[in-house]
Simulated assay, not measured.
Amino acid sequence: MRQGTEIVSIVMPIIDRWRNEEGPLLPILNGILRELGYVPRQVLPIIAEELNLTRAEVYGVVSFYHDYRENPPGRHVLKVCRAEACQAMGGDAAAEKLQRLLGVEFGETASDRSVTLEPVYCLGLCACAPSAMLDGEVIGRLDEEKAAAIAVEVRA
């Protein structure tokens, strides 16, 4: 994991790039997410100070959007839709199988850092429910067989 001074040296150029733009907070957070894969809590006061915002304002934005995680994700990020349409089409069984096979609950990263399992509340694939997204690639008609294949893929 990266240390504090290394993180700050990565974050400051991102802040400098966007600070004078209108509405710079989201582009800064997106830049940090792109560079680090997460938004470390330690950078929130720095962002607040540099943008003349309160820490609460910055934290409020970070905590509102689910993609701004505060810990490094696993090598793979698996998002499983937990919305009603996916649940109605059998998504709960596939989700339970994934959790069992991966050995993690929603919101956790496997101890070997192979995968982070995240709940999402609509991927827009209701016609192909249940659905998931693995490393940005959508998966429709998720069933227990596809769940098993995903578990093998992320552990490889």
Results as ranks from 00 to 15, higher is better:
Gly91His: 01
Val8Asp: 02
Gln87Phe: 01
Val138Gln: 09
Val61Lys: 14
Pro27Gly: 10
Leu25His: 07
Leu26Phe: 08
His66Asn: 08
Ile139Gln: 03
Ala132Arg: 04
Val8Phe: 08
Val62Tyr: 08
Tyr68Asp: 12
Thr116Met: 01
Val115Tyr: 03
Pro13Trp: 11
Ser63Thr: 14
Ile28Leu: 15
Ala148Cys: 01
Val154Tyr: 00
Ala132Met: 02
Glu145Cys: 02
Gly103Leu: 05
Trp18Cys: 10
Gly4Thr: 13
Ala151Leu: 02
Ala56Asn: 03
Leu142Glu: 03
Gly91Val: 00
Ile47Val: 12
Ala83Asn: 13
Lys97Gln: 14
Arg82Asp: 03
Arg17Pro: 04
Asn30Trp: 14
Leu101His: 06
Val43Pro: 10
Leu78Asn: 09
Cys128Thr: 11
Asn20Val: 08
Asp143Ala: 07
Pro40Phe: 09
Trp18Asp: 12
Ala110Asp: 00
Leu125Lys: 04
Ala93Asn: 10
Ile28Ala: 14
Pro73Trp: 01
Asp143Ile: 11
Cys126Val: 09
Ala156Gln: 12
Pro119Gln: 12
Tyr38Asn: 08
Gly107Pro: 13
Glu84Ser: 09
Glu145Ser: 06
Ala83Phe: 05
Ser111Cys: 06
Arg2Tyr: 02
Glu84Leu: 10
Gln42Ala: 14
Cys86Trp: 04
Asp112Asn: 14
Ile139Arg: 01
Ala149Ser: 10
Leu123Tyr: 04
Pro119Cys: 02
Cys81Tyr: 05
Asp135Gln: 00
Met133Ile: 06
Tyr38Ala: 09
Asp92Pro: 14
Gly60Phe: 15
Ala94Tyr: 00
Lys97Cys: 10
His76Thr: 00
Phe64Asn: 15
Arg69Phe: 14
Ala95Arg: 07
Thr54Ala: 12
Tyr38Phe: 09
Leu36Tyr: 14
Arg34His: 10
Arg2Ile: 03
Ile15Ala: 06
Val62Trp: 08
Ser9Pro: 05
Gln42Arg: 10
Thr54Asp: 07
Glu70Arg: 09
Leu33Thr: 12
Val77His: 07
Ala56Ser: 05
Gly107Asn: 13
Ala148Thr: 07
Ala83Trp: 03
Ala93Met: 12
Arg41Thr: 15
Asn71Lys: 15
Glu96Asn: 07
Gly103Phe: 03
Ala88Leu: 14
Ser131Asp: 04
Arg75Asn: 09
Val62Asp: 13
Leu26Asn: 03
Ile139Asn: 04
Ser131Phe: 06
His76Gln: 00
Val58Gln: 13
His76Pro: 00
Cys128Phe: 13
Ile150Leu: 04
Leu36Glu: 15
Cys128Asn: 10
Leu26His: 07
Leu125Gly: 11
His66Tyr: 06
Ala132Glu: 00
Glu6Trp: 05
Glu35Val: 02
Val154His: 00
Pro24Phe: 12
Phe106Ile: 03
Pro24Gln: 09
Val115Arg: 02
Arg100Val: 03
Leu123Asp: 07
Ala83Val: 07
